[in-house]
C-alpha cells in the first residue's frame, strides 16, 4: 500500500496515486493532530496534496526526494 494508516499516523510510500485521495480525506477528517510521514514518498498526486493542505496537516517527516520536498514544503509548511 502506498499509504499506510496507523492509529494516528499515516505513512506515504513511493507514489500516492489520485485514487487514494478519497480514503486519505476520510481518514484525516477523524483525526485531531495526525502525524504525516512522507520520508518514503517519491511522488504524490496533487489530489492528495490538496487534501493535506485543506486539512492543515502537520508533516512530521519530509520526503527524502529533494525536488518533491521543495514543492511540498512550499504548499504545506506555511
Amino acid at each position: 500500500m502506498p499509504i499506510e494508516y496507523r492509529k494516528n499516523q499515516v505513512q506515504f510510500r513511493d507514489i500516492a496515486t489520485v485514487e487514494e485521495a478519497e480514503q486519505l480525506l476520510g481518514w484525516l477528517q477523524n483525526r485531531k493532530s495526525p502525524r504525516i510521514d512522507l520520508s518514503q514518498c517519491t511522488h504524490m498526486h496533487p489530489a492528495n496534496l490538496q487534501v493535506l493542505m485543506a486539512a492543515k496537516a502537520k508533516i512530521t517527516t519530509w520526503p527524502a526526494d529533494e525536488g518533491l520536498r521543495a514543492w511540498l514544503q512550499s504548499a504545506l509548511s506555511a
Partner: peptide, 10 residues
C-alpha cells in the same frame, strides 16, 4: 474538509 472534493483541482 467535509465539503472538500479532492478530485476538483484547486
Amino acid at each position: 474538509l467535509s465539503a472538500l472534493d479532492p478530485f476538483h483541482c484547486a
